[in-house]
Simulated scan of single mutants.
Amino acid sequence: MFETFAFYALPFTFTLLVACLLTCVVCGVFLFLFRIRVTNQALRHPYLDKQSWERYPLSIRAAILLDYFLRISFPKSNFWIVGQANRLLSHVQPDELSTRLKWPLIGFWGGCLVGLIALLVLWALILLTMV
């Protein structure tokens, strides 16, 4: 029974992982090369009032983009990291943002998060089939 499940689940999970990787790379490259200035001007993160985007290291830039993603995806949550992003970006109304600004952010971070889950499932399936 499990062999049949693993026979179908392993290739599907690997395909999902590769699709998430490609989505993350394409959306990330597009975001960083073409849309980052427009996105920062539209969403106005409070950290950018202190320093310019270029002066922050890559980890802080990724955290700013993660805050944008969390505000767009979960606008009413007050829990943990999502709540902090919603408090920092309370001036942003996700319904009023154009899809042109949303899709690179959602593709970038959505691909990362779904890809992490797919990677964990893939590892679990590989370990279970080895036993």
Rank of each mutant, 00 (worst) to 15 (best):
P46D: 03
A62M: 07
L65W: 03
A85R: 07
L113T: 11
D67S: 09
L66D: 13
R55A: 14
F74H: 15
C24I: 01
S98V: 01
C27F: 00
N86K: 11
F108C: 04
Y68H: 09
K76Y: 08
F34D: 06
T39L: 05
A62R: 09
I64W: 01
S90P: 02
L70Q: 15
I106N: 03
T23M: 09
D95I: 01
W53I: 07
T23E: 12
S98I: 00
L58S: 12
R37Y: 10
Q51S: 13
I36L: 08
I60T: 11
V114D: 05
L105I: 03
P46E: 04
F30Q: 08
S90R: 15
D49L: 11
I36K: 12
S59R: 09
F108Q: 05
L101P: 00
F108G: 02
N86P: 13
S52N: 15
P75E: 09
F34E: 06
K50S: 10
Q93Y: 06
E54Q: 11
S59N: 09
A62G: 12
N78Q: 12
L48Y: 04
L33G: 00
Q41E: 12
G28H: 03
N78I: 14
Y47V: 03
L70C: 15
P75R: 13
N86H: 13
F69A: 07
R87Y: 12
E54S: 12
S98R: 02
T23D: 08
I72E: 09
A85L: 09
N40I: 02
S73H: 14
H45T: 01
S77Q: 14
L89C: 05
R37H: 10
V25E: 02
L65P: 00
A42Q: 08
L66W: 10
L88R: 15
V26E: 03
P94R: 05
L48T: 05
A63C: 11
